[in-house]
Design a protein around this nucleic acid. Structure first.
Lengths: 344, 344
DNA sequence: CTGTTAGCGCTTTCAG
DNA sequence: CTGAAAGCGCTAACAG
């Protein structure tokens, strides 16, 4: 493998001149530039990224970490879409992505700190949003440049998030507009900020419409189809009446669908079902499920843009900035009580 | 940030001694080892991975690249499961993953070559398997250490793959066993090795059972639900009779399900539907779809294991080795013609 | 505009 | 068992 010295020797110049040509320095005569270019071609020279990193003390790579629980929580497509978004900007700005998937928050924290301390990455994108988030605290303490996908409570940080509260509110209003009156809210674990925000939106919509918020209509369970299913079964056993389900995750919505089928409750006539995340398969369930589409790809793009901006212009680095992306309600048959029955 | 020199100074030894302690060299007295450990704690020293990489000329990181088309082809969950598998071993063996998602094969090829030439990674995992694969040829020419997820035709390489031919054959036999006789095969693009292999298995099963292979029952379309749907509509318009669909991707199976619903054809009684990949949502369609489960997580694990093995023991590096993982047929209602109707 | 000189932080002979 | 010295390949003042 050819080095900068080989190129220098062939071109009859010093290594630093070659380095300048690579860097595109302006104060280099056209002729030597030419010679160097030629020599580089000659030995098919490619700069060694590691050596460059050492000399410049930056790596041009950013870490993206997540723990499996978050992965599950958001469901897979979310995760890979975010990654695609990150990747697209990384490609464009010539950054690399170092990926790490951990089993739990603790492991993720250690991995993040390791990446930073070993100087393997210039900054991090983390996808976490617990109410009391130890990962975020650790990164702040370490003074690591990082961006959160989600919302940080308490500690001010750079973050990109979708507007969960607003989206949840709109979803609730949609159900009300369709004529549903007794809406059950299935929430994910309460220690996730996203759960709080979505619950908040649900409540807010009801309050604004003058509809009482009944605690028995709010349940919180772990993310899984099964949990969604049995949560509704339990409500039914307890004779809690409801005519719609606002599921804070598509998995819950699937569980609700199974619940309806199980008890021969017609959707959307007798039960409206609305999910979150708009998993690619939502249009293909029967009936197709209404769901809140999260701009996951864009979330990834925004996150890395924000990170790189801070890395490249440390002078105007901010402590706190929240980018909030809108969500889109994808209305499908599962909530269209009013519409005429559809023959697809 | 503390360096090895700081530690050396505090411990009253030379940098090389510190280096030896880090490396766990045996010929170091217990007492100095102790002193050095203490000094490291003192300044909370963490070795700089970049400097180490430069000195040892290896990075302890591997690249995983894929192009969007492959991503689509395999559908998202496949991709993220593979990544999880790769990540689990990487974590365990203390390797890092450098991820790159490209828009097309050409871009992916360039990115791969760049990662190798810049010496940013020690090796690559690529997920590609075209009939004439330019990426694989390029990597061989570059003499880059790499492992393919999929099957390489022609060029001998290290690869891990699931047994598509066998799985497809078993799936076909399952349909036959359930009493279906006229099976349509919906294939993905013909330039993918996976398409060929699955088609091959289908044919083989029919031949073995003495059932004629009818060309009009074999269609090849791009991966999408819509394409699957319209392929079947076209068949119907052309009065091609069939009582089962072997879909070489779950998306096609979803399309088939919509087709059945559209024409009020009952599944599984009048039409059996069987997909490939066993996307997490398959159990939740109605009726639940039978699908071939691919061990994607394991595929990732095997791939990186194979790669690392070659990296760490160059002496017994092999040119060709194909690891083949079995697939599992997940039988659900969509193919259970014989079973009594189910009230879920 | 270009060369010389010192590193970046760690590893690794080679002596002792 | 330990230290000195010479890199790994590149960048970045500092001169000229």
């Amino acid at each position: 493998m050819a080095t900068i010295k080989d190129v220098a020797r062939i071109a009859g110049v010093s290594p630093s001149t070659v380095s300048r040509v690579i860097a595109g320095s302006s104060r280099i005569s056209a002729s030597t530039k030419e010679k160097v270019r030629y020599a580089m071609e000659e030995v098919s020279y490619v700069p060694n990224a590691i050596a460059r990193s050492l000399a410049r003390s930056n790596t041009r790579s950013v870490g993206f970490t997540l723990s499996r629980r978050a992965d599950q929580a958001f469901s897979n497509p979310f995760f890979s879409e975010v990654l695609r978004g990150i990747s697209s900007i990384a490609q464009q700005k010539d950054y690399n992505i170092l990926l790490s998937i951990s089993r739990d928050e603790q492991e993720e924290k250690e991995k993040c700190l390791q990446l930073i301390r070993e100087r393997r990455v210039d900054g991090l994108i983390v996808s976490t949003s617990r109410v009391k988030d130890t990962l975020i605290s650790a990164l702040v303490k370490e003074e690591a440049p990082f961006v959160v996908i989600g919302r940080s409570m308490g500690i001010p940080v750079l973050s990109v998030n979708n507007d969960n509260r607003q989206a949840s509110k709109e979803a609730t209003c949609h159900l009300l507009d369709e004529g549903y009156r007794s809406i059950v809210f299935i929430s994910g674990p309460r220690d996730l900020v996203v759960s709080l925000d979505r619950l908040e939106g649900y409540k807010q919509a009801l309050v604004e419409r003058g509809i009482p918020v009944k605690p028995e209509r709010i349940v919180s369970v772990d993310f899984s189809e099964e949990e969604g299913f049995s949560a509704l079964c339990t409500l039914r056993e307890n004779r809690v009446a409801f005519d719609a389900v606002l599921a804070s995750d598509d998995l819950f919505a699937l569980g609700a669908l199974r619940f309806a089928r199980h008890y021969r409750i017609s959707v959307p006539e007798e039960l409206g079902i609305l999910g979150f995340n708009d998993t690619p398969m939502m249009p293909y369930t029967y009936p197709p499920l209404t769901s809140v589409r999260i701009l996951s790809y864009e979330l990834g793009m925004e996150a890395i843009s924000l990170l790189i901006e801070g890395l490249e212009q440390p002078e105007k680095r901010q402590v706190k900035k929240e980018v909030v992306l809108p969500s889109l309600l994808e209305v499908r048959q599962s909530t269209q009580k009013e519409a005429a029955p559809i023959i697809d």
